[in-house]
Computed example of a mutant assay.
Amino acid sequence: MGQKDITQKNFEAYNDVFSDIVNGTLFDGREVVKPEALVDAVAKSQYKADDNVIHEQERDVAKYWTDKNCYIRLALL
C-alpha cells in the first residue's frame, strides 16, 4: 500500500474511461463529456499558497475538455 496503481492510472488515461468517470461522478451518468472532446494535458500545476510559497501539484491523469475550454484532472486515492 502507498504505491500508486500504475495499471489503474494507465486505464484512466483512455478518453472513453476518463469521460465515463467524469460523467458518472459529476453529471449523474449523463453523457456530458464525450471522449472525442478530450485531449491529453499536463498533469502538473503550480500555485502560490497563503504562506507565499509556490507549491506544485501532480495529478495522475489530466485532460483538456475542448467543448468547454477547461481542464479536468484526476488523482488516484
Results as ranks from 00 to 15, higher is better:
Ile21Glu: 03
Val32Leu: 07
Val32Pro: 00
Phe18Leu: 01
Glu56Phe: 07
Asn23Trp: 12
Asn10Thr: 14
Ile6Gly: 00
Gln3Gly: 05
Lys4Ala: 15
Gly2His: 09
Val42Phe: 03
Asn15Ile: 06
Thr7Cys: 05
Ala13Cys: 07
Tyr14Phe: 14
Tyr14Val: 08
Asn23Val: 10
Lys44His: 08
Leu26Arg: 10
Phe18Arg: 01
Gly29Met: 06
Lys34Asn: 06
Tyr14Ala: 15
Glu58Val: 14
Tyr71Leu: 14
Asn23Cys: 10
Ala75Phe: 07
Asp5Tyr: 09
Val32Gly: 02
Asn52Pro: 00
Asn15Asp: 13
Asp40Val: 14
Phe27Ile: 05
Ser45Gly: 11
Ala62Ile: 04
Arg59Val: 07
Gly2Thr: 13
Lys48Thr: 15
Gln8Gly: 00
Glu31Ser: 12
Ile6His: 03
Ile72Tyr: 05
Ala41Gly: 04
Val33Tyr: 04
Val39His: 02
Asp50Asn: 13
Gly2Lys: 10
Tyr47Ser: 06
Val22Thr: 03
Arg30Ala: 15
Ile72Gln: 04
Asp60Ser: 03
Asn69His: 09
Asp20Leu: 11
Val61Ser: 02
His55Arg: 09
Trp65Ile: 04
Gln8Tyr: 11
Gly29Tyr: 06
Tyr14Leu: 13
Arg30Lys: 12
Lys48Ile: 14
Ala41Val: 05
Glu56Ser: 05
Leu38Tyr: 03
Lys4Phe: 08
Gly29Glu: 07
Thr25Glu: 05
Val22Glu: 02
Arg73Met: 12
Lys34His: 12
Asp5Trp: 08
Tyr64Gly: 03
Thr66Leu: 09
Lys9Ala: 13
Leu74Gly: 02
Ala43Val: 11
Lys63Val: 04
Phe18Lys: 01
Lys63Ser: 01
Lys4Arg: 12
Val17Met: 09
Val22Gln: 02
Thr25Pro: 00
Lys4Asn: 10
Gln8Val: 12
Lys44Thr: 15
Val42Ala: 08
Glu31Tyr: 07
Phe11Leu: 13
Ile6Ser: 07
Arg30Met: 14
Ala49Tyr: 00
Lys48Cys: 09
Ala49Cys: 02
Val53Gln: 07
Asp5His: 09
Asp16Arg: 10
Tyr71Glu: 09
Asn52Tyr: 08
Arg59Gly: 08
Glu12Pro: 00
Leu77Tyr: 07
Phe18Cys: 01
Lys63Arg: 12
Val61Trp: 03
Tyr47Cys: 07
Glu56Asp: 11
Asp50Lys: 13
Lys44Ala: 14
Asp20Ser: 14
Thr25His: 11
Glu36Trp: 07
Asn10Met: 12
Asp51Met: 02
Asp20Gly: 04
Asn15Tyr: 06
Asp28Leu: 14
Val22Cys: 06
Val53Tyr: 04
Ala37Cys: 05
Asn23Pro: 04
Leu26Tyr: 10
Arg73Thr: 10
Trp65Ser: 01
Leu77Met: 10
Asp28Gly: 10
